[in-house]
């Protein structure tokens, strides 16, 4: 199967998902090409020339940074030029802007958040979760000749080793971009703590229930010598600043100990903490996805455990 990977890059740097997709492609591929869609593809190309990449496609466009329409139109032409069996993009914010649109327009097979791949004879089999990550499913794509898959970040290790890819240019014509990049803004500057530097994080999630309950966990974290971090719902509710948020849209953390209280473990949260040294999770739901990445777990009420912890510190 020939595989086309769309390199993801931001501000001149290739994002880790790109090299992870090279590893993913090894499960399928005889031929792997990486398309670099950029104003100056050569500046990016070196970063993706790793073992496993056969060809790097230089796709030159005018846009400085990522723009939905530019990627969608460029990729449509690259696919038509190269006819890959499988197109891989990251399951990332950028890709959400063009990949489903392209799959729908071209009638491609499609799945997102894919974390395992294999070949079964001539069939491609992809694995992803359903029902809030509580069940997994094997998918195939019998009704389409070409498949576009969005790959879960951190599901594969990044490919390493010097590559010996040949390069080729693919000329594309781009019409006017209807959603234009204006500016980047950094949010959640360091007015608060830097949770990425903490050795011990006590992290709370939706299980705290109400804003009034957050304070007691802040105090508990203090007593235990931990830094308090939170999952997304607490930031969405405005209960805690986004500088405290662990996960894909927040911070990626790797403390020695990550103590998760009342966090069910959405995929986006797990992506931000699953490489922590030791993960201890407390949740009332024995099927909570957090237990799949935790080293230690207990099915218990977080308030009862917190009360007992307070007595010990």
């Amino acid at each position: 199967m020939s595989v086309l990977i769309v390199a993801e890059h931001r501000r001149g740097k290739v994002r880790p998902i790109t090299l992870e997709m090279v590893s993913a492609a090894k499960e399928l591929g005889d031929e792997t090409a990486v398309a670099v869609i950029a104003k100056d593809p050569a500046a990016i190309a070196d970063q993706v020339d790793v073992e496993g990449v056969n060809e790097i496609l230089y796709v030159k466009v005018d846009a400085e940074g990522f723009e939905n329409d530019v990627y969608r139109e460029a990729l449509e032409q690259v696919i038509s030029d190269r006819s890959p069996h499988v197109v891989l993009v990251g399951f990332s914010i950028d890709s959400m802007g063009f990949a489903p649109a392209l799959a729908a327009k071209l009638g491609l097979g499609f799945a997102s958040d894919v974390f395992a791949l294999r070949r079964d004879g001539d069939d491609l089999v992809a694995e992803r979760s359903f029902y809030g990550s509580k069940v997994n499913a094997e998918l195939d794509f019998p009704n389409t000749e070409r498949v576009l898959l969005m790959i879960r970040p951190t599901a594969w290790p990044p490919a390493e080793g010097d590559g010996a890819a040949v390069s080729a240019e693919v000329d594309v014509t781009i019409s006017a971009s209807r959603a234009r990049h204006v500016d980047f803004q950094e949010v959640a500057a360091s007015e608060d703590v830097d949770i990425t530097g903490a050795d011990f994080l006590l992290s709370v999630g939706r299980g705290v229930g109400e804003k009034e309950n957050v304070g007691q966990f802040e105090e508990l974290a203090d007593k235990m010598g931990a830094t308090l971090s939170v999952s997304r719902p607490l930031v969405d509710q405005g209960w805690m600043p986004s500088s405290r948020q662990v996960g894909q849209s927040g911070k990626t953390v790797k403390p020695k100990v990550y103590l998760a209280l009342g966090i069910s473990g959405a995929v986006q949260h797990l992506a931000g903490m699953k490489t922590s040294g030791t993960i201890i999770a407390i949740n009332t739901d024995p099927e909570a996805a957090i237990f799949n990445v935790a080293h230690y777990g207990a099915v218990a009420d977080l308030f009862e455990v917190a009360e007992e912890l307070e007595k010990l510190y």
Partner: peptide
């Protein structure tokens, strides 16, 4: 665009040591 071949409860793997 996709067909489910089989749905299953994910294997627990090493998983968490439950306290």
């Amino acid at each position: 665009a996709q067909r489910v071949r089989r749905m299953f409860v994910p294997p627990k793997g090493e998983g968490a040591e439950m306290l």
